[in-house]
């Protein structure tokens, strides 16, 4: 980190608050638009890193059939895909909906 940026960061005291939330790598914040518990696309938060990385690699190469994921996965390099997989694996799965609570 450049000294000037670091200095500005250290001066901004309120910034400490924001660091509790891990920053998604490029592209990863878009995933939640579709992927969720109960949806056909399935939740991916908290799934094993290796599983997500393998799925992305297979979508990218076309080995694994898909509707939109093959088109999306081709937009990310191997390294970017691995970063996304690692990030998603560290996310906590969403709690089940209260409306679906069992009696």
């Amino acid at each position: 980190m450049r000294p000037a940026v670091l200095a500005a960061w250290l001066l901004a005291g309120s910034v400490g608050m924001v660091l509790a939330r891990e920053r998604p790598p490029p592209g990863a914040s878009s995933c939640a638009g579709c992927h969720a518990e109960g949806a056909a696309m399935g939740a991916i938060d908290g799934r094993p890193e290796a599983e997500i990385a393998a799925a992305l690699a297979q979508y990218r190469s076309g080995v694994r059939p898909a509707s939109v994921m093959s088109r999306i996965a081709r937009g990310f390099s191997e390294e970017e895909s691995r970063a996304i997989a690692a990030y998603l694996s560290r996310q906590r799965p969403a709690a089940p909906e209260t409306s679906q609570e069992r009696p």
């Binding site: 940026v5 500005a8 960061w9 901004a12 490029p26 592209g27 914040s29 638009g33 999306i72």
Partner: peptide, 24 residues
């Protein structure tokens, strides 16, 4: 989401990271 992260960075004096975005 990308804009929010950039705003957080700018307010903290950090350079925002180059994003990638998806649409479906």
């Amino acid at each position: 989401k990308v804009c929010a992260d950039a705003v957080i960075d700018l307010l903290a004096g950090r350079a925002p990271e180059t994003p990638k975005l998806i649409n479906t």
